[in-house]
Simulated scan of single mutants.
Amino acid sequence: MKIEEYIHSLFTKDDRILDDVLESIHANSMRNISVPPEIGKLLTLLVKISGAKAILEIGALGGYSGICLVRGLGEKGQLTSLELMDEYAELAHKNLKKAGFGDRVTYYTGEALKSLEQLEAEQKKFDFIFIDADKPNYPNYLDWALRLANPGALIVADNVLQRGRVCEEPIDDPRIEFIRAFNERVANDPNLESIILPIGDGLSIARVKQ
């Protein structure tokens, strides 16, 4: 048994709500690029530990990670989710409603960078920011996360190891270079305390210093 399989067997159980989300993604001919169950559980745990009340999610897809994030919130916590595609946001909201969280989430659709500008104009601040969207914009999303984060906020990003390709010699794939730049910034930014966990496809966790 591989390490990933061992972790999965111990800490992830049957979850009809999340299984329904995956089924809806397949039924709508969307790519199944949701976070794996162990990452979903870790997101819930991190939100609980952080005590976050306001979460920003960059990349909604079908609502899988959104459900995991809201599960960690207290009764009055809210999720703001950014999604490029209107139909994806509609499916995500439908799935969050089925999970009982429909009134806990607000969606902004369109290019995430424009939505982030709108959030700043609305003077929104967040205690927890989860990045799981187009990889070339990861460095830009980190810049925005720092602008929108409350002191002590967590900034979490998925897919930061790219199946180990970030560790290889230079390769002809601009996406890898953007992720490397993101990882180096997270590691060296004086405003952050951070680490990468080799779980799933790599999860970066950073805390904004107070």
Rank of each mutant, 00 (worst) to 15 (best):
S204G: 12
E169N: 12
I195C: 14
D172Q: 13
A149Y: 08
V160K: 05
V166T: 12
R207W: 03
P190N: 07
E193K: 12
F178V: 00
R147M: 03
P174T: 08
L203A: 08
A187P: 01
R163L: 09
A149D: 10
P151E: 10
S194A: 15
R180A: 08
E168D: 15
D201Q: 09
L154F: 11
N183R: 15
R147A: 10
A153T: 04
R147F: 01
A181L: 06
E184T: 10
R180E: 06
V156H: 05
L148P: 02
L197E: 08
R165L: 13
L192Y: 04
E193D: 13
G164A: 09
I171Y: 06
I176L: 07
R207S: 11
I196K: 07
P170G: 03
C167Q: 10
R165F: 00
V186W: 03
I205F: 03
P190L: 02
F178C: 14
G164R: 05
N159F: 06
A153I: 09
L192W: 05
I179R: 02
G200V: 07
N183V: 10
D201I: 08
E177H: 13
D173R: 13
N191F: 06
G164V: 12
R163V: 13
G164E: 09
A153Q: 07
I199T: 12
G200P: 06
E177G: 03
A153H: 04
D172W: 09
P170N: 11
D172I: 09
